[in-house]
């Protein structure tokens, strides 16, 4: 119920649904799905897409920094995010669709912080 309320509020206040924009999707392969657990390296709060960089350990314990594309900051703000929603070091679980030719770049489809969904 707690998670429901913000969405209902959003609809009641006439705010439009979440939608990705600007790019065609050609750069990303919908059949290559990724799920990453890690900590926030930093966030770029810019147009046309905010970007979330996540440090995650690979199978050999090396730190890999993922580059996740989020919706625009305006879209995120309308969903209750702010520039400080994900501070450096925060624990995140991110699911997304990978870039066709770049193994650590993806469009995020779901972001959880300490188990709580920020968007999906």
């Amino acid at each position: 119920m707690t998670r429901f309320i913000p969405l209902i509020c959003t609809l009641m206040l006439g705010i439009a649904p979440l939608a990705h924009a600007h790019h065609s999707g050609a750069a990303f392969d919908p059949d290559i799905k990724v799920a990453v657990d890690g900590t926030v390296n930093h966030v770029e709060w810019t147009s046309p897409h905010a970007r979330l960089y996540v440090d995650s350990k690979d199978g050999e314990g090396n730190v890999v920094t993922w580059d996740f594309e989020l919706p625009s900051p305006v879209t995120l703000m309308r969903r209750g995010w702010s520039k400080s929603s994900l501070p450096i070091g925060a624990n995140v679980h991110v699911e997304g669709i990978r870039a066709r030719e770049y193994p650590t770049i993806a469009v995020a489809k779901k972001v959880l912080n300490d188990g709580k969904s920020l968007f999906e």
Partner: peptide, 15 residues
């Protein structure tokens, strides 16, 4: 609210 696309566009380089 402004959405200035060229501010940090990073998809074209992936194509």
């Amino acid at each position: 609210f402004e959405e200035i696309c060229l501010e940090n566009e990073q998809d074209v380089k992936l194509l």
